[in-house]
Nucleic acid binder design. Structure first.
Lengths: 232, 232
DNA sequence: AACAGATGAAGCAAATACTTATCATCGACG
DNA sequence: CGTCGATGATAAGTATTTGCTTCATCTGTT
């Protein structure tokens, strides 16, 4: 599992990322201050550092420079910079100082994941794609983004695929609609709508799971949904 | 006879090696600059690349990284690095970047030959020049750089050819646009445009694969593209 | 059984993503 | 230099996905 350290004083963002990146097999640690950050770098030896430009004490550029200059074990630590404004100058400075990539805030969680994978792939051969155990005739190959039901390849949309992956990574866990919405879209989307229900419905349909005794996705009445794992 | 390419600006060394290695049934080519080097890689398709760390334009590490990241065809080309100073850090960095071995200058010619043999043996064991299996009427002969569709030779551009090779090396794998861009154009290619789409479109056209139920390249909506392998 | 809240599913509309024609650019080559 | 082919950028045109609404159906409770 990839260890990722975020140095950012935005607590909320940190918590969100901890949740969101979890299912991409990344363990996220958050440091609210640079000093705490340096401490954690030594402690957890992260595979990737995500750095906010705006920080108390010293700014992200400064930190980036320091890390690169120390050229110890961490001199090559991949760094992804978060900048408040998508200014080109920022970008250039950042990259010159040795950041491996940058991402303007606010960003799409998916975009973040894509960039993280990119950087990790570059820095080492990225085997970070976590394997998902086949359950009850349903297999997911994340490196190929391929889903097979009883041997047949399924054609899933992005959302459907992500929902399925989420479910299968936590079989038997009951997700509330809120939770699913948050994990899938990254935003605290206040659930006025029934988007999740629709999505589940569509996924069920493709999984041929529309009978009353579901093979895969069980409705937990009044709570949410559960992907049923191995029956014992 | 093994083809060996040396990228080094030391002309004298080059001439020496041409003479010396000839005896061991190796044909040596010398490129004095990286750009010349890349040119020759394409032209003579060497079995081994010997790379000096100190070079004009860009250093050996950079070249090594580029080759590894870049083309699908030469991504596996064995590389031997020559470093001016036998520093451990250099070694590590070099190997991490994908060099197969390194040799500090100055070196004993015999030592060089030994290492060359070592690398070549390793890579031939690996069957490193991967053959591409014909799929569904499409054959690629990498040694001839020839592509046949249902028996007819296709006329592909460099990019089209590399894209096809990449696809066919990983049938059924879904590539994102990022991934394709990175593999085809080198590290850190940025996606401002629909360049990949255009390329895919052109390749599809040459493959006569423009129907809605693609024979070869499938669009994975929201994700990227997949070259479909054998259907079962 | 009747009720109120919750869920499933179909259909529509808007957002989002893809295709491709066309033009611009660049580099190789004569 | 000028031409040609390859590749990148742009944008108009399509296609697909996704979210929302609606209504039928279901569930748990009284």
């Amino acid at each position: 599992m990839k260890q990722i350290l975020i140095i950012d004083d935005d607590e909320k963002l940190g918590k969100l990322l901890i949740q969101y990146l979890e299912r991409y097999d990344m363990k996220v640690h958050v440091a609210l201050t640079p000093s705490k950050g340096f401490e954690l770098i030594k402690k957890i030896k992260p595979d990737l550092l995500i750095l906010d430009v705006m920080l108390p004490e010293k700014d992200g550029f400064e930190i980036c420079r320091e890390i690169r200059a120390k050229s110890s074990i961490y001199g090559q630590l991949p760094i992804l910079m978060l900048t408040a404004h998508a200014e080109v100058t920022d970008r250039i400075v950042g990259l010159e100082l040795g950041a491996d990539d940058y991402l303007p805030k606010p960003f799409e969680p998916r975009e973040l994941v894509a960039r993280i994978h990119n950087i990790l792939r570059r820095s080492s051969d990225d085997n970070s794609v976590r394997e998902i155990k086949p359950i009850n005739g349903l297999e997911v190959d994340m490196s190929r983004r391929e889903v097979k039901l009883d041997g047949d390849v399924l054609d899933l949309t992005t959302m459907e695929y992500e929902l399925l992956v989420l479910f299968m990574q936590f079989p038997n866990k009951t997700f509330t609609r809120d939770e699913l919405m948050n994990r899938l879209r990254g935003i605290d989307a206040e659930l006025f709508s029934r988007a999740v229900d629709t999505l589940v419905s569509r996924l069920r349909h493709k999984l041929k799971d529309t009978s009353k005794t579901p093979r895969f996705i069980k409705t937990v009445w009044g709570r949410g949904y559960t992907f049923v794992g191995e029956q014992i």
